[in-house]
Amino acid sequence: MWPLLGIAVLVVGFAVRLNPLLVVAAAGTAGMLAWHDPIYTLAAFGKAFNDNRLVASVWLVLPVIGLLERYGLQAEARRLVGRMQQATAGRLLLVYLVYRQLTAAVGLIAAGGPAQMVRPLIAPMAEAAAEGQAPGTTDKTRALVRAHAAAADNIGAFFGEDIFIAMSSIVLIKGFLDSVGYLVPPLRLSMWAIPTAVAALLVHGARLLWLDRRINRAAREPAAEAET
Protein backbone atom coordinates (compact mmCIF):
# COMPACT_ATOMS: atom_id res chain seq x y z
CA MET A 1 0.00 0.00 0.00
CA TRP A 2 3.00 2.35 0.28
CA PRO A 3 2.84 3.78 -3.27
CA LEU A 4 -0.58 5.15 -2.34
CA LEU A 5 1.41 7.65 -0.28
CA GLY A 6 2.24 9.27 -3.63
CA ILE A 7 -1.44 9.92 -4.23
CA ALA A 8 -1.84 11.38 -0.74
CA VAL A 9 1.06 13.78 -1.37
CA LEU A 10 -0.54 14.78 -4.65
CA VAL A 11 -3.98 15.48 -3.21
CA VAL A 12 -2.64 17.49 -0.27
CA GLY A 13 -0.18 19.39 -2.47
CA PHE A 14 -2.85 20.45 -4.96
CA ALA A 15 -5.30 21.28 -2.17
CA VAL A 16 -2.93 23.71 -0.41
CA ARG A 17 -1.87 25.09 -3.82
CA LEU A 18 1.84 24.47 -3.65
CA ASN A 19 3.59 24.89 -6.99
CA PRO A 20 2.29 21.92 -9.01
CA LEU A 21 5.73 21.08 -10.41
CA LEU A 22 7.04 20.60 -6.87
CA VAL A 23 3.99 18.55 -5.93
CA VAL A 24 4.55 16.26 -8.89
CA ALA A 25 8.21 15.75 -8.12
CA ALA A 26 7.40 15.02 -4.46
CA ALA A 27 4.53 12.67 -5.30
CA GLY A 28 6.64 10.76 -7.80
CA THR A 29 9.39 10.40 -5.25
CA ALA A 30 7.01 9.27 -2.53
CA GLY A 31 5.35 6.77 -4.82
CA MET A 32 8.54 5.15 -5.99
CA LEU A 33 10.74 5.39 -2.91
CA ALA A 34 8.43 2.93 -1.25
CA TRP A 35 9.82 0.15 -3.43
CA HIS A 36 12.99 1.31 -5.12
CA ASP A 37 16.22 3.16 -4.44
CA PRO A 38 16.61 6.89 -5.29
CA ILE A 39 18.69 6.41 -8.45
CA TYR A 40 16.13 3.98 -9.86
CA THR A 41 13.38 6.48 -9.05
CA LEU A 42 15.26 9.33 -10.74
CA ALA A 43 15.86 7.24 -13.86
CA ALA A 44 12.26 6.04 -14.07
CA PHE A 45 10.99 9.60 -13.77
CA GLY A 46 13.53 10.88 -16.30
CA LYS A 47 12.56 8.22 -18.80
CA ALA A 48 8.85 8.95 -18.41
CA PHE A 49 9.52 12.70 -18.69
CA ASN A 50 11.51 12.17 -21.87
CA ASP A 51 8.95 9.77 -23.36
CA ASN A 52 6.20 12.35 -22.91
CA ARG A 53 7.87 15.31 -24.64
CA LEU A 54 5.33 15.19 -27.47
CA VAL A 55 2.70 16.66 -25.11
CA ALA A 56 4.59 19.96 -25.47
CA SER A 57 4.03 20.11 -29.24
CA VAL A 58 1.05 22.41 -28.61
CA TRP A 59 3.56 25.20 -27.84
CA LEU A 60 4.66 25.23 -31.48
CA VAL A 61 1.71 27.51 -32.28
CA LEU A 62 2.89 30.26 -29.91
CA PRO A 63 5.06 32.22 -32.43
CA VAL A 64 2.13 32.50 -34.85
CA ILE A 65 -0.48 33.36 -32.22
CA GLY A 66 1.83 35.85 -30.49
CA LEU A 67 2.67 37.56 -33.76
CA LEU A 68 -0.99 37.86 -34.75
CA GLU A 69 -1.85 39.24 -31.31
CA ARG A 70 0.87 41.88 -31.76
CA TYR A 71 -0.97 43.10 -34.85
CA GLY A 72 -4.40 43.10 -33.27
CA LEU A 73 -5.94 39.64 -33.80
CA GLN A 74 -7.93 39.83 -30.57
CA ALA A 75 -9.11 43.36 -31.39
CA GLU A 76 -10.28 42.17 -34.81
CA ALA A 77 -12.11 39.20 -33.24
CA ARG A 78 -13.88 41.58 -30.87
CA ARG A 79 -14.79 43.90 -33.75
CA LEU A 80 -16.25 41.01 -35.74
CA VAL A 81 -18.58 40.15 -32.85
CA GLY A 82 -19.45 43.80 -32.28
CA ARG A 83 -21.04 43.84 -35.75
CA MET A 84 -23.34 40.90 -34.95
CA GLN A 85 -26.50 42.25 -33.31
CA GLN A 86 -27.80 38.91 -32.09
CA ALA A 87 -24.55 37.73 -30.53
CA THR A 88 -24.49 36.94 -26.83
CA ALA A 89 -21.65 35.23 -24.99
CA GLY A 90 -23.75 32.16 -24.26
CA ARG A 91 -25.04 31.74 -27.81
CA LEU A 92 -21.60 32.29 -29.29
CA LEU A 93 -20.08 29.65 -27.01
CA LEU A 94 -22.96 27.32 -27.80
CA VAL A 95 -22.14 27.63 -31.51
CA TYR A 96 -18.50 26.92 -30.69
CA LEU A 97 -19.50 23.91 -28.56
CA VAL A 98 -21.47 22.45 -31.49
CA TYR A 99 -18.59 23.18 -33.91
CA ARG A 100 -16.10 21.53 -31.53
CA GLN A 101 -18.28 18.43 -31.05
CA LEU A 102 -18.94 18.02 -34.77
CA THR A 103 -15.32 18.51 -35.88
CA ALA A 104 -14.09 16.17 -33.13
CA ALA A 105 -16.70 13.60 -34.16
CA VAL A 106 -15.13 13.41 -37.63
CA GLY A 107 -11.63 13.26 -36.16
CA LEU A 108 -10.62 16.91 -36.56
CA ILE A 109 -9.34 17.32 -33.02
CA ALA A 110 -6.78 19.96 -34.11
CA ALA A 111 -9.64 22.27 -35.17
CA GLY A 112 -9.76 23.72 -31.64
CA GLY A 113 -7.64 23.98 -28.54
CA PRO A 114 -6.75 26.55 -25.88
CA ALA A 115 -3.63 27.99 -27.54
CA GLN A 116 -4.76 28.10 -31.15
CA MET A 117 -8.49 28.88 -30.88
CA VAL A 118 -9.61 29.89 -27.38
CA ARG A 119 -7.05 32.53 -26.39
CA PRO A 120 -6.73 34.33 -29.75
CA LEU A 121 -10.32 34.05 -31.03
CA ILE A 122 -13.07 32.49 -28.93
CA ALA A 123 -12.38 34.15 -25.57
CA PRO A 124 -12.12 37.72 -26.94
CA MET A 125 -15.21 37.16 -29.10
CA ALA A 126 -17.22 35.89 -26.13
CA GLU A 127 -16.04 38.78 -23.98
CA ALA A 128 -17.02 41.28 -26.66
CA ALA A 129 -20.44 39.65 -26.95
CA ALA A 130 -20.90 39.93 -23.18
CA GLU A 131 -20.00 43.64 -23.41
CA GLY A 132 -22.52 44.08 -26.20
CA GLN A 133 -25.41 42.34 -24.46
CA ALA A 134 -24.80 43.94 -21.05
CA PRO A 135 -22.82 47.18 -21.19
CA GLY A 136 -20.82 47.79 -18.02
CA THR A 137 -19.88 44.13 -17.59
CA THR A 138 -17.42 43.79 -14.72
CA ASP A 139 -13.97 42.21 -14.79
CA LYS A 140 -15.33 39.36 -12.71
CA THR A 141 -18.00 38.53 -15.27
CA ARG A 142 -15.44 38.79 -18.09
CA ALA A 143 -13.22 36.31 -16.26
CA LEU A 144 -16.18 33.95 -15.92
CA VAL A 145 -16.85 34.25 -19.66
CA ARG A 146 -13.20 33.44 -20.47
CA ALA A 147 -13.33 30.39 -18.19
CA HIS A 148 -16.49 29.28 -19.99
CA ALA A 149 -14.74 29.64 -23.35
CA ALA A 150 -12.02 27.22 -22.22
CA ALA A 151 -14.63 24.86 -20.75
CA ALA A 152 -16.68 24.74 -23.96
CA ASP A 153 -13.52 23.80 -25.85
CA ASN A 154 -12.78 20.89 -23.51
CA ILE A 155 -16.34 19.62 -23.19
CA GLY A 156 -16.98 19.76 -26.93
CA ALA A 157 -13.80 17.81 -27.64
CA PHE A 158 -14.28 15.18 -24.91
CA PHE A 159 -17.88 14.37 -25.79
CA GLY A 160 -17.36 14.49 -29.54
CA GLU A 161 -14.14 12.62 -30.20
CA ASP A 162 -15.36 9.16 -29.21
CA ILE A 163 -17.76 9.17 -32.16
CA PHE A 164 -14.76 9.02 -34.50
CA ILE A 165 -13.75 5.40 -35.00
CA ALA A 166 -10.01 6.03 -35.38
CA MET A 167 -9.68 8.12 -32.21
CA SER A 168 -7.01 6.95 -29.75
CA SER A 169 -9.58 6.28 -27.02
CA ILE A 170 -11.62 4.03 -29.32
CA VAL A 171 -8.44 2.24 -30.34
CA LEU A 172 -7.61 1.73 -26.68
CA ILE A 173 -11.07 0.38 -25.80
CA LYS A 174 -11.01 -1.97 -28.78
CA GLY A 175 -7.49 -3.13 -28.01
CA PHE A 176 -8.41 -3.90 -24.44
CA LEU A 177 -11.63 -5.73 -25.28
CA ASP A 178 -9.79 -7.70 -27.98
CA SER A 179 -7.14 -8.74 -25.47
CA VAL A 180 -9.78 -10.30 -23.21
CA GLY A 181 -11.57 -12.05 -26.03
CA TYR A 182 -14.42 -9.70 -27.01
CA LEU A 183 -14.13 -8.77 -30.69
CA VAL A 184 -16.13 -5.56 -30.95
CA PRO A 185 -16.10 -3.58 -34.23
CA PRO A 186 -14.98 0.06 -33.66
CA LEU A 187 -18.17 1.32 -35.26
CA ARG A 188 -20.27 -0.23 -32.47
CA LEU A 189 -18.10 1.53 -29.88
CA SER A 190 -18.54 4.90 -31.57
CA MET A 191 -22.28 4.28 -31.95
CA TRP A 192 -22.65 3.86 -28.18
CA ALA A 193 -20.80 7.16 -27.66
CA ILE A 194 -23.57 9.09 -29.44
CA PRO A 195 -26.21 9.14 -26.64
CA THR A 196 -23.67 10.65 -24.25
CA ALA A 197 -22.60 13.20 -26.89
CA VAL A 198 -26.20 14.34 -27.35
CA ALA A 199 -26.75 14.53 -23.60
CA ALA A 200 -23.56 16.60 -23.19
CA LEU A 201 -24.78 19.06 -25.81
CA LEU A 202 -28.12 19.42 -24.00
CA VAL A 203 -26.63 19.74 -20.52
CA HIS A 204 -23.81 22.11 -21.37
CA GLY A 205 -25.82 24.01 -23.98
CA ALA A 206 -28.45 24.75 -21.33
CA ARG A 207 -25.74 25.96 -18.96
CA LEU A 208 -24.36 28.29 -21.65
CA LEU A 209 -27.78 29.84 -22.23
CA TRP A 210 -28.13 30.21 -18.50
CA LEU A 211 -24.75 32.00 -18.53
CA ASP A 212 -26.39 34.74 -20.61
CA ARG A 213 -28.99 35.31 -17.92
CA ARG A 214 -26.28 35.44 -15.32
CA ILE A 215 -24.31 38.02 -17.33
CA ASN A 216 -27.37 40.20 -17.82
CA ARG A 217 -28.35 39.96 -14.16
CA ALA A 218 -24.84 40.79 -12.99
CA ALA A 219 -24.82 43.92 -15.16
CA ARG A 220 -28.24 45.00 -13.84
CA GLU A 221 -27.45 44.34 -10.19
CA PRO A 222 -23.70 44.77 -9.61
CA ALA A 223 -24.25 44.46 -5.85
CA ALA A 224 -25.88 41.04 -6.17
CA GLU A 225 -22.94 39.78 -8.18
CA ALA A 226 -20.47 40.80 -5.51
CA GLU A 227 -22.08 38.30 -3.14
CA THR A 228 -21.98 35.25 -5.39
Binding site: G28, G31, A48, A56
Partner: peptide
Amino acid sequence: PQMLAALGVVFAGAGI
Protein backbone atom coordinates in the same frame (compact mmCIF):
# COMPACT_ATOMS: atom_id res chain seq x y z
CA PRO B 1 1.38 18.44 -18.79
CA GLN B 2 4.60 16.59 -19.47
CA MET B 3 5.46 16.27 -15.77
CA LEU B 4 2.01 14.91 -14.95
CA ALA B 5 2.09 12.47 -17.83
CA ALA B 6 5.42 11.26 -16.50
CA LEU B 7 3.97 10.94 -13.02
CA GLY B 8 1.12 8.85 -14.39
CA VAL B 9 3.65 6.44 -15.89
CA VAL B 10 5.55 6.25 -12.60
CA PHE B 11 2.33 5.62 -10.65
CA ALA B 12 1.31 2.89 -13.05
CA GLY B 13 4.76 1.33 -12.75
CA ALA B 14 4.47 1.34 -8.97
CA GLY B 15 1.32 -0.78 -9.25
CA ILE B 16 -1.12 1.81 -7.95
